[in-house]
Amino acid sequence: MRQFDEELTALKQRILRMGALVETQVANAIKALVERDTELAKSVIVTDHQVNAYDVEIDEECIRLLALRQPTASDLRFITTAMKISTDLERMSDLAEDICERALELADEPQLKPYIDIPRMANWARTMVKEALDAFVNRNADLARKVCRDDAFVDDLTGQIFRELLSFMIEDPQTIRRAIRITFVAKYIERIGDHATNVAEMVVYLVEGKIIRHTTV
């Protein structure tokens, strides 16, 4: 195997490790919210620096490969994709952290209502993240396109959650503080889905050389 191929494989491994970490963060953030587990929420927040470190390392490695290897064709697409994917993963990690912060605030007050749609939505978003990364590993453009399509469902759920919470707030202003925080959480999850979609769109570019952003799949 050529040295360059080894470097590309190492880069891919690093993205995957970063992705696995972010997936866990998202899962734990939702678990911390639903189970009102403040210790778990705090533990997610402290892992943020690990993700940041991955983001910087991956960027540096990509820049180094661009400068020293002058990649072309699919190698070039792989490296530019890796740079963008690491940015999206880092943002997802920040959103997981935001969910945990809201979870800590919500844990101080009585529960507004049992969480039903939030975990459902979070599961979808998590699956999108996982599938986007699987699509990246296996250069699977079909799976990536599925992820892009699935985003609509997460968006719909956000709207639904908002409407439901609005009814709580209208009925009883005492719930506003909590309802707004939960609305934020829904928005964070929706953003995680958007970042997973970005990753998936980059995978289509990686495989096919086509930029599908800002188009309907």
């Binding site: 050529r2 360059f4 990649p71 072309t72 064709a73 697409r77 050389g209």
Partner: peptide, 17 residues
């Protein structure tokens, strides 16, 4: 040609494989 060649042989040549 240098970002998205259509032919596998072109790709192999320009990426040094």
């Amino acid at each position: 040609i240098f970002t998205n060649p259509l032919e596998k042989v072109t790709e192999d040549y320009i990426t040094g494989r």
